[in-house]
């Protein structure tokens, strides 16, 4: 049987038995789901890819700890979510700052020089002009770890409540509660931001229509 056709549990058994080449099959199989989860959690592509790499390294170095009676998804997402949590904790303790002074910014406040990679959205994110999606991302980014993990695994990775409970280390009932709380918080944050934005748009006076320079000159000539 080809490696591609083998179950995760079989591949893990072979990995434990010393057949390192099956790691590549596992990487091909799990890179996309991991990216889907980690990218949405971290919201920075470079960091997400680093975390995915580390997840596979840990999957290999801790392979003996895997229990084939459980789906690999629970175990692999447990590793990834712990790494995401550690990264978030590290970021809180080591906030990243731009390598620049006040004078290094232009009139609009944009950096003139390169900065240390930060957790801010990358250009592909900035290109995303969908306001609602942007607000959704912000709302998810602001969720506590437990709620965020449950939310992302349920909505985007399609894990069952049982599998999520194994990742999160809580009961199935606990998963339901977390999902309920996460949805509530997201809705609240999105509604608040969008309504505030609309309010600001309403209050902001529309800019005066600027006539063309040629028309102005022609009018001045006519007056003269």
């Amino acid at each position: 049987m080809l490696d591609d056709q083998k179950s995760d549990a079989d591949l893990m058994r072979e990995l434990v038995a010393g057949r390192q080449s099956v790691l590549r099959t596992l990487i091909t199989r799990w890179e996309r789901p991991l990216f889907s989860f980690v990218y949405r959690y971290i919201q920075n592509e470079h960091t997400a890819r680093e975390i995915i790499q580390e997840t596979f390294v840990r999957l290999y170095t801790k392979k003996e700890r895997y229990n084939p009676e459980y789906p690999l998804s629970s175990w692999i997402f447990t590793i990834a979510s712990n790494l995401c949590k550690n990264h978030a904790r590290w970021l809180r303790r080591h906030p990243e700052v731009p390598l620049e002074t006040e004078g290094d910014r232009d009139e609009e406040g944009n950096a003139k020089r390169d900065t240390i990679p930060s957790n801010l959205p990358d250009p592909s994110q900035l290109a995303d002009r969908n306001e609602e999606i942007r607000e959704l991302r912000k709302a998810i980014a602001g969720l506590p770890h437990d709620l965020k993990t449950a939310m992302l695994l349920h909505h985007f990775e399609g894990l069952s409540y049982k599998e999520i409970s194994e990742v999160a280390g809580c009961s199935v009932r606990g998963v339901e509660t977390r999902l309920y709380r996460a949805r509530k918080l997201i809705r609240k944050r999105i509604e608040k931001t969008l309504s505030e934005d609309r309010l600001i748009q309403k209050k902001k006076p529309s800019p005066p229509v600027r006539r063309g320079l040629i028309s102005e000159v022609l009018e001045d000539w006519a007056k003269a």
């Binding site: 790691l23 990487i27 990216f35 990218y39 596979f56 390294v57 999606i133 959704l136």
Partner: peptide
């Protein structure tokens, strides 16, 4: 809204090598 959020995914061709190096 959640369904609309679909980030672009491109497999990292060097991932397996980087993992093995590490």
């Amino acid at each position: 809204l959640l369904r609309k959020w679909q980030p672009d995914f491109k497999p990292d061709p060097m991932l397996a090598e980087h993992v093995e190096d590490q």
